[in-house]
Write a protein that binds this DNA or RNA. Structure first.
Lengths: 156, 156
DNA sequence: CAAATAATGCTGACGTGTCAACAACCCGGT
DNA sequence: ACCGGGTTGTTGACACGTCAGCATTATTTG
């Protein structure tokens, strides 16, 4: 049990700044979405994937792989969105266990109405605030962090 | 209603990488905390502030300012943590509306036990993965984003 | 001083995410 | 053909965060 390596001022500042950004940015995006489109970030994620898919339908498993969600989270979310008319569930022909998730016209309309405002907000609060070098740095850092976490995940 | 300025490949990659990092990093930290210390990130936040405070007690309003939470979020969280014996509520002598929140011995023990492992995880998945220049860039970017969001908040 | 206004903290209702358990189904080996 | 293990999706219980509304108390204003 050795003495922990605490963060020095420089590290602590960066870490706190990141935490602050992540929190406020997520809140700002969520607020804009619900205010202008009556959609949550989770709604938006699913709608984007489905709207970019040929035929606007995907098997639940594929949808899960695309957004990397938990089984039950997807089930709950899909049920709620189905109740609101944004999408529809159908049986899967090739596998009786499966469920197909399909975009409704209302869902398509919702995502098309929401997308421009959302992208504009992403630009305003993030993308347009970084120059090319900062963007590259941030991307490199983010990919490094993700790889590290995934590497640890698999070894256990 | 003009055509929206969609993200180009470079921008989209950086944005998605950031989203991916923020998600996996938050999940990894939360997992480590609950696994090794039976604390949530929210628990940890409150405990850190209280443990760094002279006397280990703070008025609820001050605690709220420190962590920048909603009124009711703090009330719920404090109630739950009080039930678990991590902290204790007392009346405020100088203002009959106020509530003092005070760290218990169990709460102090919990944060002291949790801190080393948490810091180690922050290093492993974030701080130690960045060199000095990247750290500085990230901090500058984060502060810029936060300022932008706050500026928009106040003008409305 | 009295009334209006603001601030503080609490609660209940609701939507969301996680966890464990479950039923239905596919596929492999024997 | 059948049994056993893996997969798929669903559900219920629970913890958490947000919102609107409330009671209580300070503070301002006339």
């Amino acid at each position: 049990m050795t003495e922990p390596r605490w963060l020095d001022d420089r590290e602590q500042c960066a870490w706190r700044a990141y935490q602050h950004m992540q929190r406020d940015l997520a809140a700002a995006l969520e607020r804009q979405l619900t205010r202008d489109s009556a959609l949550s970030g989770a709604d938006y994620e699913l709608l984007v994937v489905l709207s970019e898919t040929e035929g606007h339908r995907l098997r639940a498993r594929e949808l899960r792989n695309a957004v990397r969600w938990d089984r039950s989270r997807l089930a709950h979310q899909v049920r709620r969105m189905e109740n609101r008319g944004l999408l529809r569930r159908t049986e899967c022909e090739t596998d009786a266990r499966g469920t197909m998730v399909e975009l409704t016209d209302a869902g398509r309309a919702a995502i098309e109405a929401a997308a421009p405002g959302h992208v504009e907000t992403v630009r305003r609060y993030f993308v347009d605030l970084l120059d090319a070098e900062e963007t590259a740095t941030l991307r490199a850092v983010a990919e490094r962090v993700v790889r590290r976490i995934h590497a640890d995940d698999e070894e256990c």
